[in-house]
Design a protein around this nucleic acid. Sequence first.
DNA 1: CCTACCGATCGGTAGG
DNA 2: CCTACCGATCGGTAGG
Lengths: 202, 202
Amino acid sequence: MATAAPLRSRKAQIDRTATALFRARGFAATSMRELATELGLEAGSLYSHIKSKEEILHRVCFGLAEAFFAGFEAATAATSAPIATQLRQAIEAHVRVLTRDSAASAVFLHEWRHLSEPARSEFLALRDRYEAAFRSLIQRGIATAELHAPDAAFATLALLASLNWLPAWYRPDGKLTPDEIAHRLADQLLGGLLNERAAMSQ
Amino acid sequence: MATAAPLRSRKAQIDRTATALFRARGFAATSMRELATELGLEAGSLYSHIKSKEEILHRVCFGLAEAFFAGFEAATAATSAPIATQLRQAIEAHVRVLTRDSAASAVFLHEWRHLSEPARSEFLALRDRYEAAFRSLIQRGIATAELHAPDAAFATLALLASLNWLPAWYRPDGKLTPDEIAHRLADQLLGGLLNERAAMSQ
DNA sequence: CCTACCGATCGGTAGG
DNA sequence: CCTACCGATCGGTAGG
């Protein structure tokens, strides 16, 4: 009798378990033996599925980067929509990625510095591009007077910082659903950016 | 002829250098040999000044916690002042601690989880108390209608998250002074919280 | 503050 | 996927 096919590939299981450990203990403080034990196998056996510890980190960090970009592009595809609407969609898309896999998000946000070159620089370039995309949206909103902020760069940093703190306190079993959190965060953070006229027409 | 007294005690030098390394590479990925080399001595020699690697982390984390509390208490000492004013002072005090030593702040924010018990739990209790103090201030501001926010807990988290992102982008040699950054951040973050009447009277 | 060293643990590999 | 192992490195100590 054949054993049932695994629900996820072994490699995907390794990534998932490693991500949880990287988040809880940090990349450097997580040992491959610990990871193997958690998966019910021996340390050496991991290497028939992966090439190295860093390879896992690489996949997690760049996979999340892709998810963030995909969300942003879908949110801002309707270029004729009001900037405030596009920004709201982008915020909600960002929050959905953060809540869909908060462990991977935490690793994306804090463990990327353990990537070795050139991956580390490539990662930072992607992150900068993502920030620039938000900043550009906010700048256009200010230019068309749909948004108001004393400094677009500051506003962008503060906005993303508020969002990125989410994995630190989000609990999947909390009383708010991911969508409710996304709405509420968007309300609050847009509230500070909308100018009065726009706020009234909302 | 006696050698000149060191500008800082050796222990303080060790703490400073270790803090910079902990920030750059993370606590677990920083070796005592690396730290010793940076200070121009041998690894074993460190232990005539300190008891352990974790002792350094402990001092940094709890020292910063003390600095944050001291700033908050000074900022809110004038209990008869408008809540918005107290909150502004508290924000600016927080930013001044972050900019005065951004390396130690980054360690305080991200490396505390490498503390072993019971220090780790003690640290988290302090951090919770600090957050609660901000939340309480914001809640009182909402109660007296000086501030406006759909959810005080959310507003507190978003506020502190925005502030705590600062060590990630602050450069001591940047074009803005710490005080200018403090003012600007306070303007922006209070802007979203002040209700219209308070905003007009400002 | 150094020399010399300890036991423990690390990421990863060879061979099956 | 396991057994058995590699060289390297870790935090920390003894004795001076």
